[in-house]
Design a protein around this nucleic acid. Structure first.
Length: 571
DNA sequence: CGCTTTTGACCTGCGC
DNA sequence: GCGCAGGTCAAAAGCG
């Protein structure tokens, strides 16, 4: 189910794992307790018990020595010899334990007994006996709750540890993947600079090999061997002319060699899924299969926008446009131009049903440093792809992950995450076209904890607390999104914001106007690359998102979380 | 002049 | 085998 990582969290129900108990109207309620860090776990750190204990003291005729409410009891005669100061001192010297009001009750019991000792009537004795019995019961209950509390904390610690390990494992995999891609590109550039031919032809020559047989070229670094393995298909053995062609399409009618000159098709596969299916069934099959699946993963974002293309912080170059069947709007193909050989591509097309909806589909991982804004989207796509593929490869269509993903995304973005691992390309679709919930819009559900410095280098993979980084970023960027997004919405509405037009600096002081239309706001938010940071954080902090969702479940159910498994057609 | 966009042609996979 | 649709390429055109 979950790749056997040793951590299974069924976030669909909070009953199976009582980590997050809701408020209970018992004498040991957590109602006045502090929230446990990270997960909102309630912990009773107060000396004085909560309101119920307070009420209980009133019932048993106790004196509240911890407040200014030291009023005479209803039976002052019973307390005339009581010395509050002495009792308070006694209580203060009583060792305190976290999560318990036992000592207090014990002290109060003693005080109560000392008070009752002065009484002589049988009624008083009966009452005292009843109170004593009740107090004993309360003490037992408190002890039980203490034990349960301790167990819960242990469970929480265990789960947190597992989650941290899982998070680090995920980040390690992401870094390795990124490093491999960088090595691939660097190897190509190095080969190209060595002057064997030049340009595309040289690269093709090197990648195919001097003989043009598609065999492994010794001049190419080991890091790129897998890509050659992918391109060195049995069919490539027939492409003898591959090494002599002039860079145009080869005579064999096989365009795959011509695509080899496109590094993105190799390192990431790009949209050229056909190549991936030609992997040589050798011992590299297992590795390449996983990588190929990784390369095929897509992240699609549906958003209302009047702009021709959403601004995601990257530089794109349009390399093609096609009319897709069933859609009068053309589909544009872009590739990232921020670095030579960046494998990331995206498709942009308007929805046929609603032309105000812009569908942007990303594939691949950047192999170069990114600005923070672009980092957000890159992290989002990478994390979403990894999340999607981790489910598609091991579980039934990533149902579990789809739940987690949607739960993580939805509280922040009011979007609908649709995952499809059974489609030709495993695709996660973030539908941002639904009406946002104002309450969610204003308050991120992810429990942000750390301050965010916009100027700080953002490295999702190196920090010991990547989740905290992501959360912090999400908090800050989310706030920025609320401002800059609305600011952009005005531009969109007035001047039809041009794609990739330089955006004015953020103006946090500008008051957000939630009275804008939903369409304009969504379009603006989507156009703002900062928005994607929220998604990145949400995906990265998948568990946190689940917890947040869990909290939402216990507090309110106004989340419009909806997870569906569908077949993404790409249109 | 260099970069980007446009656009027609080509290639591949898939279904019939 | 043929046609269709998706995806890509590269020459030509456009633009600053």
């Amino acid at each position: 189910m979950d790749k056997g990582w040793g951590l299974t969290l069924d976030t669909s129900s909070s009953q199976s794992l009582p980590l997050f108990p809701s408020k209970q109207p018992s004498a040991t309620s957590f109602s006045n307790d502090r929230m446990f860090p990270l997960l909102g776990f309630p912990v009773n750190l107060s000396r004085a018990a909560n309101k119920e204990d307070d009420d209980h003291r009133k019932v048993v005729g106790e004196v509240d020595f911890f407040s200014d409410r030291n009023k005479p009891t209803p039976t002052p005669s019973l307390h005339q010899n009581v010395k509050p100061n002495i009792i308070k001192k006694e209580i203060d010297e009583t060792p305190l334990h976290v999560n318990t009001g036992l000592q207090l009750l014990t002290a109060n019991t003693g005080s109560d007994q000392s008070t009752v000792d002065d009484g002589v009537s049988s009624d008083a004795e009966d009452k005292r006996a009843a109170k004593t019995t009740e107090l004993v019961q309360l003490q037992v209950e408190l002890q039980r709750m203490n034990a349960e509390n301790k167990k819960l904390k242990e469970m929480l610690s265990h789960v947190t540890g597992n989650y941290t390990a899982l998070q680090m494992h995920f980040m390690t995999l992401m870094q390795q993947n990124q490093r491999t891609e960088n090595e691939v590109v660097e190897g190509k550039v190095e080969d190209k600079n060595h002057g064997v031919g030049g340009g595309k032809v040289a690269r093709q020559f090197l990648e195919i090999g001097p003989s043009g047989t598609g065999e492994v070229d010794e001049q190419v670094s080991d890091s790129s061997s897998d890509e050659r393995t992918r391109s060195s298909t049995p069919q490539n053995n027939n492409n003898i002319e591959g090494g002599t062609r002039d860079g145009a399409r080869n005579n064999n009618g096989k365009h795959e060699l011509g695509r080899e000159e496109s590094p993105e098709s190799e390192s990431q596969g790009g949209w050229a899924s056909n190549k991936i299916q030609k992997v040589n069934p050798s011992n590299a099959m297992d590795q390449s299969t996983t990588e190929a699946t990784m390369r095929k993963a897509r992240v699609s974002v549906r958003a209302r926008s009047e702009a021709p293309m959403i601004s995601d912080g990257c530089q794109w170059r349009k390399y093609g446009q096609k009319m897709a069947k069933g859609n009068p709007c053309p589909r544009a193909y872009y590739r990232c131009t921020m670095a030579v050989g960046c494998p990331v591509r995206k498709q942009v097309q308007r929805c046929a049903e609603d032309k105000t909806i812009l569908v942007t589909t990303y594939e691949g991982t950047h192999n170069h440093p990114l600005p923070p804004a672009a980092m957000a989207m890159a992290s989002t796509t990478a994390a979403a792809a990894s999340m999607l593929l981790s489910g598609s490869m091991s579980s039934a269509d990533g149902i579990m992950n789809s739940n987690l993903l949607a739960r993580a995304i939805l509280p922040c973005s009011t979007s609908m995450a649709t995952l499809s691992a059974s489609a030709p390309f495993p695709t996660v679709t973030l539908d941002l076209t639904h009406n946002p919930n104002p309450s969610q819009f204003q308050r991120p559900a992810v429990p942000f904890q750390l301050p965010f410095l916009p100027g700080q280098p953002q490295n999702f993979g190196s920090g010991a607390t990547p989740i905290a980084q992501a959360q912090a970023q999400a908090q800050a960027l989310y706030n920025q999104s609320k401002f800059s997004g609305l600011q952009l919405s005005q531009e969109v509405g007035s001047s039809q914001l041009a794609p990739q037009a330089p955006r004015p600096p953020l103006q946090p002081s500008q008051p957000p106007s939630l009275a804008d239309t939903v369409t304009a706001a969504t379009a603006a938010i989507t156009a703002d690359p900062n928005f994607t940071a929220v998604l990145a954080a949400a995906i990265s902090s998948i568990i946190g998102g689940a917890n947040a969702n869990n909290n939402n479940t216990s507090n309110n159910n106004n989340s419009t979380s909806r997870t569906t498994i569908s077949s993404f057609s790409g249109n």
